[in-house]
């Protein structure tokens, strides 16, 4: 499972190095995401730029990751390719997640600050 992470001052960026998030890796993806979102900054952004394809198992693993993170942290996605976007849209999961066009926009854009 290729998941790398870097912490900026305000966010943990998790870069998915896999080209596919599918049934073959969904469980290990979910487990590794749990490790990477446990602790660290309160804002988590998952950079999906390298992911060409996602199936319903992979989508389920990303929903599971959102749920694992819990209400005290922000869990966001960035850089969804055409087919990945299509799956999010068809399942209406694009209405559930905060989705940024690209990771640099996610990091450069205004941060929701309720404090």
């Amino acid at each position: 499972m290729e998941l790398a992470h870097t912490d900026t001052a305000e966010a943990r960026v998790i870069t998915v190095g896999e080209h596919r998030i599918d049934a073959a890796i969904a469980i290990s993806f979910k487990d590794r995401m749990r490790e990477l979102t446990d602790g660290g900054p309160n804002r988590v952004i998952v950079d999906m730029t390298q992911v060409d394809f996602i199936d319903s198992s992979g989508l389920g693993a990303i929903v599971a990751a959102l749920k694992q993170v819990g209400p005290d942290k922000s869990f966001e996605l960035a850089g969804l390719s055409g087919t990945v976007q299509k799956v999010f849209k068809l399942t209406r999961m694009d209405t559930v997640f905060t989705i940024h066009p690209a990771i640099d926009i996610a990091l450069g854009g205004p941060v929701a600050d309720v404090g």
Partner: peptide
């Protein structure tokens, strides 16, 4: 998908995708 995050479904998307497409 309207409820709280902890109630979001993690499966059951497959057949709706197949039927839609």
């Amino acid at each position: 998908l309207a409820g709280p995050v902890e109630d979001l479904p993690e499966g059951g998307f497959g057949w709706s995708l197949i039927r839609d497409l």
